[in-house]
Every structure is written in structure tokens, then in C-alpha cells.
Design a protein around this nucleic acid. Structure first.
Lengths: 237, 237
DNA sequence: CGCCAAATTTGATCTGGGTCAATCGGCTTT
DNA sequence: AAAGCCGATTGACCCAGATCAAATTTGGCG
């Protein structure tokens, strides 16, 4: 939404001690490859609300999210928005066949990405099938998530949507931060609404309803799961 | 839905004169590789309504659709169904990370697939990065379609959904059969409803409404686009 | 051709979630 | 600490699409 005034950090970092080393695309590279890979990417910071790339942009870079959360979305000409996913550290963004990004991505809060120019990255991947295999694995996993999201959007009621979202989000955070009943929600109610195919009012009412039923507690910056089994029952439905 | 009594044809066919040779996964193989590849797949026929594989099945095979149309769908425990896509000749099915199919697939009308056992296919692909690249390309394209479908499900009204579906389906058929204003619809109204996140009644009413407005004509086995520009205006909206 | 079963269309009514309109509450600014 | 702002909540009302209930059409099949 805001004009990009992203800060580019002098590249004084090493892949070997990168926070996402173990589970991002680079997990497929051995130490020798990693040293070469290091020269391909540069760290870039984005502030809250800044746009990292837009739907119709020609793809010149791929991105590996290192820190923070991003919203990935598509807009209709009249401004309706559908958030197609939230990106977390370790997610790889920018693959496409058309030569253009087919969704937009903004930072939710401060974000750090590892940016790769498309051409050198493609050349590097050319002769490293295991990197391609890793990227394919990530694409196939995303495809599976996308299909789950379609079921949610097409066939679930508002309370089921919210319950599934909370559990799914918690699960993704678990692999980064460990298990907890506290679920931080860095995105706004509007973001949640646009992710679930609802309005902000319905999201707010549904949160309140879940809280009244003792399923969750709404706390500053997120929610706390009071009765995980109840929420799971709603989400399974 | 029906128990599978699929007919397995003695493998007397050659990849080189396969109908989907030019645009399926095998498009990435040279003539020598193709001869080897030939021994990996076997043609299998399915009758109308037969299930090719189910959501929770362990993946033992991949499939290349040769002839016919399939519906790909997920079910909720209470029977609600979301169709996540329709497969057409050239589509490659079965990739996943979990070891299980994450959706079910039935034949809509008679279908022929080229079935590959997972392990030998994986071994063959292992040493042919261009085949992997081709599969990745197909996955990334599907991901883009999936995101468009999310926008449709989450943010579009019934008439916009139907108009987008008709145009999208026509476009896919175009690359197989050439341009035409006649759009065959081999799937049932219920299938269309489950694809669009609507009920069968709403789909039927919306078809009638589009016909009354002179946008389409409902003909046996499909529709005819009477005013493509009008339909496009609705779909763009 | 005539009969039954299934698919589709049409009609009447209902309702979940949208729309419109106030508040509310937590930050920032001064 | 008062004012202003913005996101979130709550309330009143409405409507697109769901649900329930018939017709009507279509397709197989003896």
C-alpha cells in the first residue's frame, strides 16, 4: 500500500547462521553450495505495511522470508480483496510460469527477506536438481494448503472458518515457536476477514461468540485457546 | 463413488503417438527417453462416475489424464463437497508431500489415464531434471489457478462465479479443441455448484438469468455464448 | 412407445452474513 | 490530560443465496 522505501542492508551475513537455514529452500544445499549461494541473495528490510511486490509486476526476484509475517493477496478491479495466504519465515515467494507475480505481498509488521535476482538464481538452480526438488516440494505443499483453503472458502460457515483459521495458524507458528495456547495474531481483523471471505464485522462478532462460549479468550495482540477441543470440534464440523 | 472395476488395456500403445504427447509431462522427454518411459506407464480406462483415487489413499501411482474429464474434490465429514478443480487431458495428478492423495478424483464420463507406479516413476525422474522442471512448471501453474479459484470462492457473487467459470472452462477447452462459442459442460449442475461454492438451485437460477439477459443460450450438454462481451463484463466485475 | 428414475428448473420462504451506523477503547500528539 | 485517530466492537436492518417443496424435463430401458 505504501511506497517502498525498503532498507537494503550491506550483505555482512552468512547463510550458515541464518535463522531459516534448516527449513527454507536452502535446507537442500550442502556447506560448499551454501557459500556460493550466499553471494546470490541480499537481505532487505521492509517496514509495516510496505509492499514487497505487486500482482502485475514482472518477476525480477524471488524472495525467501527470514523474519516477520506477510499477507499475500489478490484484488478485484473494484477493490474487493482476497488474501490467499500469510507467509512466515522460511516461505519461498515468487515462483510463477507467466513471468509475472500473480499476487501481491505486503509486510505485516517489520519484515526481513533474502532477495535473489531471478536470472542468477535460475542459473544456480539449473545445475542443482536437489534445489529444484526442494522448491517443487514447497510448491506441492502450498498446493495442498490452497485446496484446504478452497474448502474453507466454499463450504464452511463463519464460525467454522474462524476456528479452522485459528488452529491452522497456531499449527504453523508451532513449528517456529513451539507449542502454546497463546496464539498471536499480528494481522488486522480486516486481514482475517479477507482471508476467510467474510466481513470485518462478522469476524469480530464470531470472535466474541467464541469467547462467550468459553472456547477462546481475546487478549491483546491475539487470542488464547481456552478450550482447544471445542475449537477443534468447530473446525472439523 | 462406484467401486472401481477399471479396465486395464494390454499396453500396446506408444507414447510417440499419444494424444497428449505435446503438452503433458512427457513433452519434456526426447525420443530416446520416451521409449524408456513407455514401459513405466500403462493405460487404464474408467467408466462414468468411477473413482480413480480417494483423498485418504496412500499414493502408489501418479496419473496422466489422456482422455475425458475428471472432478477433483474434497469432502467434509458431514458430506459437504468442494470441487477443487476439473482435470482435462494432459493434466498430471498425484503429486504430494504427505504420501497420501489430498483430494479424490472421479471420472466424469469415460476416462483414459496413463498410470505410473510411484517408485519407478520417481527413479526415472531422479536422473532427469528436465522432467522434474516440467512437473514443477505444472504445479506452479496449478497454484496460480488455485489462487484465482480462492478469489472466486471468497469474493465473488453467484453470477460473477458462473460467468468466470464458463469463460475459464471455455479457455481450457480452447487449447484442446480450438475456439468456439459452444461450451460443452460434461459435468452435472451439482458438480458446477460444488465447484463454485453454491447450491444446485442457485446455479440453475443463475443459468436461467444469464439466458434471459441474452448472455448465453442453454443447449443440450452445455451452453452457447450469445454475448461473450456481456459474460466477460460480468466475470471481470 | 411408454414408464420409471434421476436431473433440472421453478416457486415460496427463511436466514446467515452483509450493510449501514453508532460507539468504544487504546494510542499518539500536543 | 485533553483531543484526535484508528481499529475493533456492537446494534439494527436487509438481502443474496440457502432451504424446502413442487413441477418439469430428460434419459434409460423393457
Amino acid at each position: 500500500m505504501k511506497a517502498s522505501v525498503a532498507m537494503i542492508e550491506p550483505n555482512c551475513h552468512f547463510c550458515s547462521d541464518c535463522a531459516v537455514r534448516g527449513f527454507a529452500v536452502c535446507a537442500s544445499l550442502d556447506p560448499a553450495e551454501l557459500r556460493e549461494f550466499e553471494h546470490l541473495g541480499r537481505r532487505v528490510h521492509f517496514g509495516s505495511g510496505e509492499t514487497v511486490f505487486s500482482e502485475e509486476d514482472i518477476t525480477t526476484s524471488f524472495y525467501n522470508l527470514l523474519e516477520g509475517v506477510m499477507r499475500l493477496y489478490k484484488l478485484l478491479p473494484d477493490g474487493r480483496r482476497q488474501i490467499v495466504g500469510f507467509a512466515l519465515p522460511g516461505d519461498f515467494l515468487g515462483m510463477n510460469t507467466s513471468g509475472r507475480h500473480n499476487f501481491s505481498a505486503d509486510a505485516i509488521g517489520a519484515v526481513t527477506v533474502c532477495q535473489f535476482a531471478k536470472v542468477p538464481f535460475g542459473r544456480f538452480m539449473e545445475e542443482r536438481p536437489h534445489l529444484l526438488r526442494r522448491i517443487n516440494e514447497l510448491a506441492v505443499r502450498e498446493l495442498s494448503q490452497a485446496r484446504d483453503h478452497m474448502v474453507l472458502l466454499g463450504r464452511r460457515a463463519a464460525d467454522e472458518k474462524l476456528a479452522s483459521f485459528l488452529l491452522g495458524w497456531r499449527l504453523r507458528l508451532q513449528s517456529l515457536n513451539g507449542v502454546s495456547d497463546m496464539v498471536p495474531l499480528p494481522m488486522s481483523r480486516q486481514d482475517i476477514a479477507d482471508y476467510l471471505g467474510l466481513t470485518i464485522e462478522t469476524v469480530s462478532r464470531t470472535f466474541t461468540k467464541l469467547e462467550r462460549h468459553g472456547a477462546i479468550e481475546i487478549v491483546h495482540g491475539g487470542i488464547s485457546l481456552r478450550d482447544p477441543a471445542l475449537v477443534e470440534a468447530l473446525a472439523a464440523a
